[in-house]
Amino acid sequence: MDQTRGPATSLRARLHASFPQHVLETHAYRGQETVLLKREGLLEVARVLKSDPVFAFDFLMDLTCVDYLTFGRVLSSRPSLATPSPLPYYMTPKPDPERWQRGVSDAAYRFDVVYHFFSSSRVHRLRLKVPLSAADPALDSLTELWKSADWFEREAWDLFGVVFTGHPNLRRLLMYEGFQGHPLRKDYPFNKRQPLVGPVN
């Protein structure tokens, strides 16, 4: 590990210094460096992350999505086909206004696409999060840089409905082609079935 790297030259500080126009926020909660990025800057930043020897992120370990539709909101207590999945019973939902002060407004912030990078040569990790709105959940595809992005992005499209422009083959991965909707979204009830053969239950 690079011994000269202290807080002043941490990965997120370097990234912030290189791309001040794209980086919204950084933190290192529990020691895991995280950078929030604007979606316009994603491809450029990703290129730098891969090619720059300071970062040297040759592995895109994971690409997933978070749906904040029900975050901090009180919902009905029982899951059913009509209402979306609630917060677990032991969590007291509290609205969190500080969360929304990121240069994006509440209405425009529904999804976070999360990227986990790992560098095998420098052995460090970084997490990138790109907030997206509900109306236009579209983002650049990273398949030209890391082949692992291919199926991860297909999964994100399938389960969340996030569109990756530039993806060579953006179709459903886990659900079948005729499936309507995106199951991991918070407004898709967990037991709503759309069977191809057989009864609904």
Partner: peptide, 11 residues
């Protein structure tokens, strides 16, 4: 008991 699974093959 979710969107993806057949609830028993006797259906």
């Amino acid at each position: 008991d979710n969107y993806a699974t057949v609830m028993g093959i006797d259906t």
